[in-house]
Protein backbone atom coordinates (compact mmCIF):
# COMPACT_ATOMS: atom_id res chain seq x y z
CA UNK A 1 0.00 0.00 0.00
CA UNK A 2 1.50 3.30 -1.00
CA UNK A 3 1.92 6.13 1.38
CA UNK A 4 -0.40 8.26 -0.67
CA UNK A 5 -3.23 5.85 -0.13
CA UNK A 6 -2.87 5.88 3.61
CA UNK A 7 -2.89 9.65 3.51
CA UNK A 8 -5.76 9.95 1.15
CA UNK A 9 -8.19 7.01 0.97
CA UNK A 10 -10.75 9.16 -0.86
CA UNK A 11 -8.42 9.60 -3.85
CA UNK A 12 -8.09 5.80 -4.07
CA UNK A 13 -11.82 5.64 -4.64
CA UNK A 14 -11.69 8.70 -6.88
CA UNK A 15 -13.85 10.75 -4.54
CA UNK A 16 -13.81 14.04 -2.63
CA UNK A 17 -13.88 14.20 1.13
CA UNK A 18 -17.39 15.51 1.10
CA UNK A 19 -18.74 12.51 -0.84
CA UNK A 20 -21.86 10.95 0.61
CA UNK A 21 -21.86 7.46 2.08
CA UNK A 22 -23.88 6.23 -0.93
CA UNK A 23 -21.22 7.60 -3.30
CA UNK A 24 -18.48 5.90 -1.27
CA UNK A 25 -20.29 2.55 -1.39
CA UNK A 26 -21.02 2.87 -5.10
CA UNK A 27 -17.42 3.75 -5.97
CA UNK A 28 -16.15 0.93 -3.79
CA UNK A 29 -18.40 -1.65 -5.49
CA UNK A 30 -17.53 -0.30 -8.94
CA UNK A 31 -13.78 -0.50 -8.33
CA UNK A 32 -13.95 -4.00 -6.82
CA UNK A 33 -15.94 -5.14 -9.82
CA UNK A 34 -13.36 -3.53 -12.10
CA UNK A 35 -10.38 -5.23 -10.44
CA UNK A 36 -12.21 -8.46 -9.70
CA UNK A 37 -10.10 -11.61 -9.72
CA UNK A 38 -12.22 -13.04 -12.57
CA UNK A 39 -11.05 -10.25 -14.84
CA UNK A 40 -7.41 -11.25 -14.33
CA UNK A 41 -7.48 -15.00 -14.59
CA UNK A 42 -4.21 -16.19 -15.99
CA UNK A 43 -3.17 -12.61 -16.41
CA UNK A 44 0.38 -11.51 -15.51
CA UNK A 45 -1.19 -8.46 -13.93
CA UNK A 46 -3.24 -10.63 -11.54
CA UNK A 47 -0.86 -9.85 -8.66
CA UNK A 48 -1.12 -6.16 -9.41
CA UNK A 49 -4.94 -6.43 -9.45
CA UNK A 50 -4.89 -8.24 -6.12
CA UNK A 51 -2.71 -5.43 -4.78
CA UNK A 52 -5.15 -2.90 -6.18
CA UNK A 53 -8.13 -4.65 -4.55
CA UNK A 54 -6.21 -4.65 -1.30
CA UNK A 55 -5.68 -0.90 -1.68
CA UNK A 56 -9.36 -0.38 -2.39
CA UNK A 57 -10.45 -2.45 0.59
CA UNK A 58 -8.01 -0.64 2.89
CA UNK A 59 -9.19 2.74 1.63
CA UNK A 60 -12.84 1.78 2.12
CA UNK A 61 -12.20 0.51 5.65
CA UNK A 62 -10.27 3.67 6.44
CA UNK A 63 -13.13 5.86 5.24
CA UNK A 64 -15.72 3.92 7.29
CA UNK A 65 -13.55 4.19 10.37
CA UNK A 66 -12.90 7.89 9.86
CA UNK A 67 -16.58 8.64 9.39
CA UNK A 68 -17.54 6.68 12.52
CA UNK A 69 -14.99 8.62 14.54
CA UNK A 70 -16.19 11.91 13.16
CA UNK A 71 -19.76 11.06 14.07
CA UNK A 72 -18.80 10.09 17.62
CA UNK A 73 -16.84 13.29 18.09
CA UNK A 74 -19.81 15.31 16.89
CA UNK A 75 -22.15 13.52 19.28
CA UNK A 76 -19.80 13.97 22.23
CA UNK A 77 -19.39 17.66 21.65
CA UNK A 78 -23.14 17.98 21.18
CA UNK A 79 -23.88 16.34 24.50
CA UNK A 80 -21.16 18.42 26.12
CA UNK A 81 -22.80 21.50 24.73
CA UNK A 82 -26.15 20.37 26.06
CA UNK A 83 -24.70 19.81 29.52
CA UNK A 84 -23.22 23.26 29.60
CA UNK A 85 -26.63 24.59 28.59
CA UNK A 86 -28.48 23.12 31.55
CA UNK A 87 -26.19 24.16 34.36
CA UNK A 88 -23.51 26.43 32.98
CA UNK A 89 -25.54 29.56 33.36
CA UNK A 90 -22.98 31.16 35.64
CA UNK A 91 -25.63 32.99 37.60
CA UNK A 92 -27.38 29.75 38.47
CA UNK A 93 -24.05 28.26 39.51
CA UNK A 94 -23.66 31.19 41.86
CA UNK A 95 -27.20 30.75 43.18
CA UNK A 96 -26.59 27.05 43.80
CA UNK A 97 -23.33 27.86 45.59
CA UNK A 98 -25.16 30.39 47.76
CA UNK A 99 -27.83 27.82 48.64
CA UNK A 100 -25.20 25.19 49.44
CA UNK A 101 -23.38 27.58 51.73
CA UNK A 102 -26.64 28.44 53.52
CA UNK A 103 -26.88 31.99 52.21
CA UNK A 104 -30.56 31.63 51.44
CA UNK A 105 -31.48 35.29 51.35
CA UNK A 106 -28.50 36.01 49.08
CA UNK A 107 -29.69 33.31 46.69
CA UNK A 108 -33.20 34.74 46.85
CA UNK A 109 -31.98 38.23 45.96
CA UNK A 110 -29.98 36.90 43.01
CA UNK A 111 -33.03 35.01 41.74
CA UNK A 112 -35.34 38.00 42.19
CA UNK A 113 -33.07 40.18 40.09
CA UNK A 114 -33.07 37.77 37.13
CA UNK A 115 -35.31 38.46 34.19
CA UNK A 116 -35.14 35.13 32.40
CA UNK A 117 -37.55 32.67 33.99
CA UNK A 118 -36.84 29.17 32.79
CA UNK A 119 -37.45 25.83 34.49
CA UNK A 120 -34.23 26.03 36.49
CA UNK A 121 -35.14 29.47 37.79
CA UNK A 122 -38.44 28.10 39.12
CA UNK A 123 -36.71 25.08 40.58
CA UNK A 124 -34.13 27.17 42.42
CA UNK A 125 -36.85 29.52 43.69
CA UNK A 126 -38.57 26.40 45.00
CA UNK A 127 -35.45 25.27 46.84
CA UNK A 128 -35.00 28.71 48.38
CA UNK A 129 -38.67 28.94 49.40
CA UNK A 130 -38.54 25.50 50.94
CA UNK A 131 -35.49 26.45 52.98
CA UNK A 132 -37.22 29.62 54.15
CA UNK A 133 -40.26 27.65 55.21
CA UNK A 134 -42.56 29.08 52.52
CA UNK A 135 -43.98 25.70 51.65
CA UNK A 136 -46.89 26.82 49.51
CA UNK A 137 -44.65 28.96 47.32
CA UNK A 138 -42.10 26.14 47.14
CA UNK A 139 -44.76 23.71 46.03
CA UNK A 140 -45.96 26.01 43.23
CA UNK A 141 -42.41 26.74 42.08
CA UNK A 142 -41.55 23.05 41.86
CA UNK A 143 -44.78 22.39 40.03
CA UNK A 144 -44.01 25.08 37.44
CA UNK A 145 -40.42 23.87 37.02
CA UNK A 146 -41.67 20.33 36.43
CA UNK A 147 -44.26 21.53 33.93
CA UNK A 148 -41.69 23.55 32.03
CA UNK A 149 -39.14 20.74 31.87
CA UNK A 150 -40.97 17.46 32.55
CA UNK A 151 -37.90 15.32 31.80
CA UNK A 152 -35.62 16.89 34.39
CA UNK A 153 -35.21 14.40 37.21
CA UNK A 154 -33.92 16.97 39.67
CA UNK A 155 -37.08 19.07 39.44
CA UNK A 156 -39.39 16.11 39.38
CA UNK A 157 -37.76 14.57 42.41
CA UNK A 158 -38.01 17.81 44.42
CA UNK A 159 -41.71 18.06 43.62
CA UNK A 160 -42.42 14.40 44.31
CA UNK A 161 -40.47 14.49 47.57
CA UNK A 162 -42.82 17.06 49.09
CA UNK A 163 -45.85 14.93 48.29
CA UNK A 164 -44.10 11.79 49.48
CA UNK A 165 -43.18 13.31 52.83
CA UNK A 166 -46.65 14.77 53.29
CA UNK A 167 -48.17 11.41 52.40
CA UNK A 168 -45.98 9.60 54.91
CA UNK A 169 -47.23 11.89 57.67
CA UNK A 170 -50.83 11.38 56.65
CA UNK A 171 -50.38 7.63 56.79
CA UNK A 172 -48.51 7.60 60.09
CA UNK A 173 -50.47 6.42 63.11
CA UNK A 174 -54.04 5.14 63.16
CA UNK A 175 -56.50 6.96 60.95
CA UNK A 176 -58.79 8.88 63.22
CA UNK A 177 -62.48 8.83 62.57
CA UNK A 178 -64.96 11.12 64.19
CA UNK A 179 -66.70 9.37 67.02
CA UNK A 180 -70.31 8.43 66.55
CA UNK A 181 -72.54 8.03 69.60
CA UNK A 182 -72.29 4.20 69.58
CA UNK A 183 -68.51 4.09 69.87
CA UNK A 184 -68.73 6.89 72.40
CA UNK A 185 -71.08 4.85 74.62
CA UNK A 186 -69.01 1.73 74.11
CA UNK A 187 -65.88 3.59 75.12
CA UNK A 188 -67.61 4.92 78.21
CA UNK A 189 -68.72 1.42 79.17
CA UNK A 190 -65.22 0.08 78.65
CA UNK A 191 -63.80 2.99 80.62
CA UNK A 192 -66.31 2.21 83.38
CA UNK A 193 -65.26 -1.46 83.44
CA UNK A 194 -61.62 -0.44 83.62
CA UNK A 195 -62.34 1.99 86.42
CA UNK A 196 -64.24 -0.65 88.34
CA UNK A 197 -61.31 -3.01 88.04
CA UNK A 198 -59.14 -0.32 89.55
CA UNK A 199 -61.62 0.37 92.31
CA UNK A 200 -63.21 3.49 90.81
CA UNK A 201 -66.45 4.06 88.91
CA UNK A 202 -67.68 6.52 86.29
CA UNK A 203 -71.15 5.10 85.68
CA UNK A 204 -72.42 4.29 89.17
CA UNK A 205 -75.55 2.41 88.00
CA UNK A 206 -73.67 -0.30 86.06
Amino acid sequence: MSERNIMEPYSVLGLNRDASMEQVNAAYRELLRKYDESNYVDNPLADLATKKRQEINDAYDAIIKMRAEEKKRAEDSASEKQQTNTSANPRYTEVRAAIDSGNIMGAWQMLSSMKERDAEWYYLCGVVSLRRGLYNDAYSFFKTATNKDPLNMEYREAFARMDRQAGAYRQAGPNMQQMDCCTCCNNLLIADCCCECMGGDIIPCC
Binding site: N136, Y139, M162, Q165, A166, G167, Y169, R170
Partner: peptide, 15 residues
Protein backbone atom coordinates in the same frame (compact mmCIF):
# COMPACT_ATOMS: atom_id res chain seq x y z
CA UNK B 1 -54.51 24.20 46.21
CA UNK B 2 -52.69 24.90 49.44
CA UNK B 3 -53.57 21.60 51.11
CA UNK B 4 -50.66 19.63 49.67
CA UNK B 5 -48.17 22.05 51.10
CA UNK B 6 -50.14 22.13 54.35
CA UNK B 7 -49.68 18.37 54.73
CA UNK B 8 -46.03 18.86 53.95
CA UNK B 9 -46.00 21.52 56.66
CA UNK B 10 -47.36 18.98 59.17
CA UNK B 11 -44.82 16.39 58.12
CA UNK B 12 -42.14 18.96 58.94
CA UNK B 13 -43.57 19.35 62.44
CA UNK B 14 -43.17 15.61 62.90
CA UNK B 15 -39.71 15.61 61.29
Amino acid sequence: NSLNSLWYNMSEIAA
